[in-house]
Simulated scan of single mutants.
Amino acid sequence: MPDSTARTGLVDLAAAAKDGCEHALERLLAHVHVHVVRSCRAWLAGVGDGAAEEVAQEALVRIATGIHTCRAGTDDVLFAWCRAVARNAAMDRLREHLREWEVRALGDEFAEVEGDPDAAERSQAVSAVLAVLDEALGTEPEAVHALLWHRVVRQDSWEEAAHALGLTAAGAKRRFQRTVARVRRKVECALTGSDDPARVAARRWLALQGHGLTAGKW
């Protein structure tokens, strides 16, 4: 019986891998490895040393364990599927860093002062705002997370962010403005529609910071 791994097409290698041929799976991963790494480096530029390579390895693991779910009928479609798996892994990492940035940013804005009698309430308020903001961002598509990463965390110019996302600068601005308005509405709804003590504290502290929810300033 001829060795199925002698075939060089990606679809053929995937078919053999689904049949349990580990050598075929290894060859498939070797084919896409460099492209996965290159894509992760582009998506995760500025995240940190080694992050792209680490996420690329995670993406390859996801490809290996999920190959049986791929229904690609051509090499181009299979390659696009592998790239989509890598993009999902990269977006997961971006979301993690966005949350870390949120914690640092709000922590700076509501910095506790030693001996401050309101420190406990402030801490409760910050936790509530973070939770609500995390919920709001969690419902946004990955394209929005990528845009926020480039504009808010990396502080790229509109042109740089647009280039990274395949948009025009004007298009990136419109998407950002719509996102801010949408997330603001979600946060306002979550905070004003609850009598939870932590969220009440959050409303009070936001008001002290000049972000009165009822006035639509937040």
Score class of each variant (00 low, 15 high):
59 A>H: 10
60 L>R: 14
60 L>M: 15
62 R>D: 14
64 A>Y: 00
64 A>K: 03
65 T>Y: 13
66 G>Y: 08
66 G>W: 09
68 H>K: 06
69 T>H: 10
70 C>Y: 01
70 C>H: 01
71 R>P: 04
72 A>N: 00
72 A>W: 00
73 G>Y: 00
74 T>C: 05
74 T>D: 00
75 D>K: 01
76 D>S: 14
79 F>N: 09
80 A>M: 02
81 W>T: 02
81 W>P: 01
82 C>F: 02
82 C>A: 11
82 C>L: 03
84 A>S: 15
84 A>K: 13
84 A>G: 09
84 A>N: 14
85 V>T: 15
86 A>N: 08
86 A>V: 05
87 R>N: 11
88 N>V: 06
88 N>S: 14
89 A>I: 02
90 A>Q: 05
92 D>W: 10
93 R>G: 02
93 R>W: 13
94 L>W: 10
94 L>A: 07
95 R>G: 15
97 H>M: 06
98 L>G: 15
98 L>T: 10
100 E>L: 09
103 V>M: 13
105 A>P: 00
105 A>S: 14
105 A>F: 09
107 G>F: 14
108 D>S: 11
110 F>N: 00
110 F>A: 04
114 E>Y: 05
114 E>N: 01
114 E>A: 15
116 D>H: 02
116 D>L: 05
118 D>K: 06
118 D>P: 02
118 D>E: 12
119 A>D: 05
120 A>N: 07
123 S>Y: 01
123 S>K: 07
125 A>C: 04
128 A>W: 04
128 A>M: 08
129 V>C: 14
129 V>K: 06
131 A>C: 05
131 A>Q: 07
132 V>M: 09
132 V>H: 09
132 V>K: 10
134 D>A: 12
136 A>C: 08
136 A>L: 11
136 A>Q: 07
138 G>N: 09
138 G>A: 06
138 G>I: 07
139 T>Y: 06
140 E>Q: 15
141 P>H: 05
143 A>S: 11
144 V>F: 05
145 H>R: 01
145 H>K: 01
147 L>C: 10
147 L>F: 11
148 L>S: 07
149 W>F: 15
151 R>Y: 04
152 V>E: 14
152 V>T: 13
152 V>R: 14
156 D>F: 07
158 W>H: 03
159 E>Q: 15
161 A>Y: 03
161 A>V: 06
163 H>M: 08
167 L>G: 02
169 A>E: 11
170 A>E: 07
171 G>R: 03
173 K>P: 04
173 K>T: 13
174 R>P: 04
175 R>F: 05
